[in-house]
Design a protein around this nucleic acid. Sequence first.
DNA 1: CGATCGTTTGATCCGCATCAAGATAGGTGG
DNA 2: CCACCTATCTTGATGCGGATCAAACGATCG
Lengths: 258, 258
Amino acid sequence: MSDVKISSNVIWTLPFFSKLNDVEKAELLKVANFRHVKRGETLFLQGDRLTHFYWVCSGAIRQFRVTPDGRELTGAIRTEGDVLYDPDARQREQHHAMNARAVQETSLLAIPASWIDEHIKLWPHLADHFMTLLAGRAQEALIDTEHQATMNAAQLVSCFLQKLCVLHHFDPHGFELPYSKSLIASRLGMELETFSRTLPKLREVGITVTGKHVAFDNISLAQSHACNACTVTEECLTHAAMQEMATRSVGNYKKSGQ
Amino acid sequence: MSDVKISSNVIWTLPFFSKLNDVEKAELLKVANFRHVKRGETLFLQGDRLTHFYWVCSGAIRQFRVTPDGRELTGAIRTEGDVLYDPDARQREQHHAMNARAVQETSLLAIPASWIDEHIKLWPHLADHFMTLLAGRAQEALIDTEHQATMNAAQLVSCFLQKLCVLHHFDPHGFELPYSKSLIASRLGMELETFSRTLPKLREVGITVTGKHVAFDNISLAQSHACNACTVTEECLTHAAMQEMATRSVGNYKKSGQ
DNA sequence: CGATCGTTTGATCCGCATCAAGATAGGTGG
DNA sequence: CCACCTATCTTGATGCGGATCAAACGATCG
């Protein structure tokens, strides 16, 4: 509900709305709304009715689920430009399946879900953006699963640090962690203790972490260790080697035989 | 390339094409194609150009990725009615990110990707189906991740067995496993040995497995143990209790405080 | 009847979680 | 500016679940 004049500039820089024409922009502004949440404040909870879609303009939102035994699983940390959109909502008819809470002070663009539902049929590029978004989320999740299944703590951490660095355009030679270590550990699906113990070990692969300060001493070395399927600039690509192995394998589900 | 007359009946039973009118059906048949693969045969590999989308008419296809160290990760087992659609393909421009291989003799409906690309803009319900599909895949992946993170081997197995039973409309009081145990273990992200050792333990929760034969002795007992967030008929629902816990928690990422 | 595939069972090991103290840092009030 | 407090992180000791290595077992098949 704050200054809309400032914020309306922000909207059009979001990839989601960058292709709108002036008429469409005007229409969008009629229903768009701004919402600010303070650090630790909750945006919505699992089971809440889905009333709005949110675009993060600044700050960071942690999305998480709470398991029956009370453990919190951090699904994603959404930052500037990201959308809070529950893929599940499409099926479970307008109810959130995740909780969303502000990591820091955060401002969001809120657009009524009903408006989106109507206009997704009318504006083709909107539908297109949503399909891309959904595909991206599906892919994200697959990569996450693959990482959890194949990488150990050290690899997960260094992979995370590198993606973080690229995503936020940090200087690889030295930057500060934007989140608490507890949050990062949770995002990586490990305990804080494990995360903490892992950091010193990363020195071997050229990553020095002191307090909140991170430095990649030798970028290429860190790269090769981090994640065999990730590079700093691109996510888990398919390698020729991987394909070749698949060709050779026959039918056992363990290792590719030769 | 077998008998199209038989198969054309099959197509319209797929949820994907059930809403087409006669003109559209005719048009689809012009480009639709059938493909048969034998047990163990490969449909496509990571990195292959994506030329067709496939709908499984009968049989089962294992989708998997091969990690650089040669381990095969089974992402999904697609059966009758499922679509082989790589969410990643949308971004990585027409290349498969997964391998697909027949578990059993399988017949598929193949539709050229180019035709889909064109018609997705023309036929609104087609776009809608794809969005639902993508949303479903994203959701599937999230649930998978959550399961891997929170459940032990026994829970994973019993959850799998129950979903299997429901999905294939098996009799809970006794049915045969449709896949090899190695395949199931791989799908669950565990070693065959672990899977094998887990089966006897399930007797405690009312699941008896002898050879390939599975029986749920006490269905409600098995349910409550299997997966706190799953029921036999529905996947991982949000519970009121879970929401309540989230409300009480404040900011630590481990357990919800009170 | 040996050969191969799929599975079981046993023995051992390792990574991470868990429990339990300390240590450091950031913030507040005196 | 310091004393105090709490949040956040580090470090240590221990245990467990599942991976790994190894071997035997049972079925199916040529």
